[in-house]
């Protein structure tokens, strides 16, 4: 009695494992059809990556398996994976993520030819990753709720009671951390913390998961203003059409710590078994062809290669007057995270 039921159960188990096999088989079979497949851990927006990946595969015949997630999660994954990481290339939105990987020795040194494609000040000081695009932080505001003249000149003003209940904030956005680091570099930890606490109070009820939501809700008139990177505004406009755009963007005063240039970059994993192919992908990202694709895409980020213009309608990169904080000073962002935790924003 029991034995036959046990064997039946074993049969069921085998059957369901077979089903697991079938459910798994489909994608890997199609992937095997191509000669080389590299895996891209993509912390960049899919808008930016999609067109690049397609063009690269068309050109080289190398397939790219894309794993898109928040850059923080990706860095965490790679650090957990260590030498077993399936990733060949990592492409992030901000420099701290790459600096963190570099600090753990997980990235391979890039050939000089790739590094020199974009200006050195936008790349890794050690040379393990290269800058691909840049964005600049701006104020997004809804003129129906706040007049342009009432906007702060400095990001520090956003922590004052003047902006109570008017501020939208996405504390979990990695785009926000460079601003914190910049403030902390200039004004020290204590002042930065009280500034963050002030912002938290001002943003009560308007703490959002991401900058897309900040932009969207400012545009819908739910909250007066927020701090975003400029391209969120352009993307929203592309999504919903110019006539539906009620929000506007404004710059902070030149060299204000709220006025930060965020660099997005890419690197090759030290453990990658496909280093040649991976380097070709990174090289493509910073090549003229790749940079032009970014320029024409719906990404609205600044291409960094010389001679590739800013996306249509945006101020040229060279005309910007951001806080002069360097990539090295921005570091791996752990100080910003600590400050966010201390202020109860994380």
């Amino acid at each position: 009695m029991r034995r036959s039921i046990a064997s039946l159960w074993a049969l069921g188990l085998a059957g369901s494992i077979g089903l697991v096999g079938v459910a798994t088989a489909a994608p890997s079979a199609s992937a095997r059809a191509h000669a080389v497949t590299i895996t891209l851990y993509n912390g960049q927006h899919v808008q930016t990556t999609d067109a690049l990946v397609r063009a690269f595969t068309r050109r080289t015949g190398i397939t790219v398996a894309v794993r898109s997630e928040d850059e923080g999660a990706l860095v965490n994954e790679i650090e957990a994976e260590g030498s077993r990481s399936p990733a060949d290339v990592v492409f992030t939105e901000n420099s701290p993520a790459l600096e963190s990987l570099q600090g753990h020795g997980l990235l391979a040194r890039l050939p000089k030819a790739i590094r020199s494609a974009t200006p050195a000040r936008f790349g890794s000081p050690r040379g393990d990753w290269v800058g691909v695009t840049a964005r600049v932080s701006v104020i997004v505001y809804n003129p129906a709720l706040i007049r342009a003249t009432q906007l702060p000149r400095s990001v520090l003003a956003l922590g004052t009671a003047r902006y109570r209940r008017e501020l939208a904030l996405a504390p979990g956005e990695t785009d926000f951390q460079p601003i914190i680091t910049a403030v902390a570099a200039r004004d020290g930890t204590a002042r930065t913390r009280s500034w963050l606490e002030g912002m938290k109070a001002n943003a009560a009820g308007h703490l959002y998961p991401d900058n897309e939501t900040v932009t969207n809700d400012v545009n819908r008139g739910l909250v007066a203003l927020g701090v975003i990177n400029q391209y969120y505004w352009y993307r929203l406009r592309a999504q919903i059409g110019a006539r539906n755009m009620h929000a506007r963007i404004a710059e902070f005063a030149p060299r204000d710590p709220g006025y930060v240039l965020d660099v997005s970059g890419a690197g090759v994993l030290a453990a990658s078994p496909h280093r040649r192919a991976a380097e070709r992908f990174v090289a493509f990202l910073v090549s003229r062809a790749g940079q032009s694709i970014i320029d024409r895409s719906d990404s609205f980020e600044y291409p960094l290669a010389k001679g590739v213009p800013a996306p249509t309608g945006e101020a040229p990169l060279a005309s910007l007057r951001p806080d002069p904080i360097s990539i090295a000073e921005l570091g791996d962002g752990h100080r910003a995270v600590q400050l966010l935790e201390q202020a109860g924003l994380l």
Partner: peptide, 9 residues
């Protein structure tokens, strides 16, 4: 968020 931002499992 802790995982995504703070990389802290």
């Amino acid at each position: 968020t802790e995982l995504q931002v703070a990389f802290d499992l």
